[in-house]
Design a protein around this nucleic acid. Sequence first.
DNA 1: GAGAAAATCCGTAGTAGTGGGTATATTATA
DNA 2: TATAATATACCCACTACTACGGATTTTCTC
Lengths: 205, 205
Amino acid sequence: MKIFLVDDHAILLDGIKSILEKEPTLKVIGEANTAEVALEFIKQNEVDLLITDFNLPEMDGLALVRLVKKISPITKIIMLSMHDEVHLVKEILKEGINGYILKNDSHKELLSAIAAVDAGKIYLSNDINKIIINSLQFPDEERMLTDREREILKLIAKEFSNRDIADQLFISERTVETHRKNIFRKTKTNSLVGLIKFAYANNLI
Amino acid sequence: MKIFLVDDHAILLDGIKSILEKEPTLKVIGEANTAEVALEFIKQNEVDLLITDFNLPEMDGLALVRLVKKISPITKIIMLSMHDEVHLVKEILKEGINGYILKNDSHKELLSAIAAVDAGKIYLSNDINKIIINSLQFPDEERMLTDREREILKLIAKEFSNRDIADQLFISERTVETHRKNIFRKTKTNSLVGLIKFAYANNLI
DNA sequence: GAGAAAATCCGTAGTAGTGGGTATATTATA
DNA sequence: TATAATATACCCACTACTACGGATTTTCTC
């Protein structure tokens, strides 16, 4: 099984490689610190399995997954993330990846995931399963932010005022206020600080 | 050399262990996900080198370092952090640790650090050196926040209003406003969002 | 083409925080 | 003990955002 690793922390990359090298059936044929470099490699080489972090500089793991699915549909993908925020997990799973494990899972979980994915199954780590099931049991939570709301939240996080955002998007300040109101409602926060924390947890910053 | 590892991400712990096991002179005699568990171990066993992450649940890496220095002064310490924020780096180095490397350094850097520390030297990763030198060249930056300011920043980050904070600390709202002003000045931010980002970067949240 | 969802826009009143000061008591530190 | 640093407190004018409310247009979906 030809595996390609992506993570922006070299030490983690080295560690995982060291673990996988102990398995005779697995072969790490390449690694990268950024999604861009990974894509270049996948365009030119056949990769059976891509194991990628979600947090990457520039292009994030989600964008990488979408592009890999386009340019190399046979490549299976396992996401190795530290994020356990329900919105974000759902967003990633929607892309149809083959496995999702967390960084505080052990290497055994990673090996199990690889085996399962190799056998054509989908593997979710225990914690991720819990999150999914929990969100099915308590579906009260609002649906995700719309694209526009997300756009505005990002601008808020970039320290723009309502006035600035309105100018930038060529809309009225009122509209920005309305979006802001809706974002607050949907994220169940009622302070700017809470909102920024939400943005962090959901990787919008 | 008897080494103890601390990191809240099991997969990283496993990876580093796997790397270190290849070196015949090194022996990983234990590992932990939390500072508390690590301290228990160090109390009862002789540890030559502690390699610890900074971000830990509950007690953080800085507090761990301070306690280890007390209960086992012979134990050398290498901090393995993803933080490269100048204030925080300085704060950690002030504790007198033996090495500081970043998570996006490679395993070679880690091995070099271990060798240097074993030889009684202090090892700083290249990026950390740059940060230190840079801060010497441009010492214009304000000194760190005072304890009180830090306390107030944490409360701001917990979504308390000035009124709330004043009540909680039994001081006037005016005083809170003054502290807030000083915090803004010192952190060179001028929006709440910037402030929260600073708090994140400095691990105050 | 009906209906839902999303995006747009507005008013009015009130509040919390910003930015500019100044000033004094307390606590470290040399 | 002088000096600096920190923590405390106040004033005033201003602005940005909040919290209610309601409404219309555009876009998507069945």
